[in-house]
């Protein structure tokens, strides 16, 4: 079982943390396509942390019930998401991005949970099972 938490403050951390996720996904036995899905989802959420959250942390760990899986927890203490429903719809961006980060990450993974409190921050948990 593996669990690591990395600080995400800038663009270089995005590359680092998604590389970390890919390595664990590969070690667990995820195929190339799922590795790509997981890595991309991490990249989208890590960028949200940098752009919107003012930095934060990403925890990447092995999970297990009947199967093995990977869980990624992304948390920041930024301003929170004003309109969560809108942000999850996709195609909406407050900073001129494509606005597909959150909705895209949700589609790429098996499970997706989000908790955003105005003025307190945002936590996103994503999981993929083998």
């Amino acid at each position: 079982m593996s669990e690591d938490t990395l600080a995400v403050k800038n663009e270089y951390d995005i590359i680092k943390v998604r590389g970390f996720g890919r390595n664990l996904a590969a070690r667990l036995g995820f195929g190339v396509v799922n590795q790509c899905r997981i890595t991309t989802a991490i990249s989208e959420l890590a960028r949200n942390i940098v752009v919107h959250g003012g930095g934060g942390f990403v925890t990447i760990k092995t999970i297990e019930n009947d199967r093995l899986g990977i869980e990624i927890i992304c948390r920041d203490e930024g301003p929170g998401i004003e309109d969560l429903e809108l942000a999850l719809q996709g195609g909406y961006s407050t900073v001129g991005g494509l606005g597909i980060g959150l909705s895209g990450a949700r589609r790429l993974m098996d499970e997706f949970e989000i908790d955003s409190i105005r003025g307190k921050g945002t936590t996103v948990i994503i999981r993929k099972w083998l």
Binding site: V32, V33, Q35, C36, R37, T40, E44, G90, G91, L98, I100, S103, G104, R107, L108
Partner: peptide
């Protein structure tokens, strides 16, 4: 790469 193409479409791009 095929995996990248697949992921980009799923991402909603």
């Amino acid at each position: 790469q095929p995996a990248v193409a697949l992921t980009l479409v799923e991402l909603g791009l």
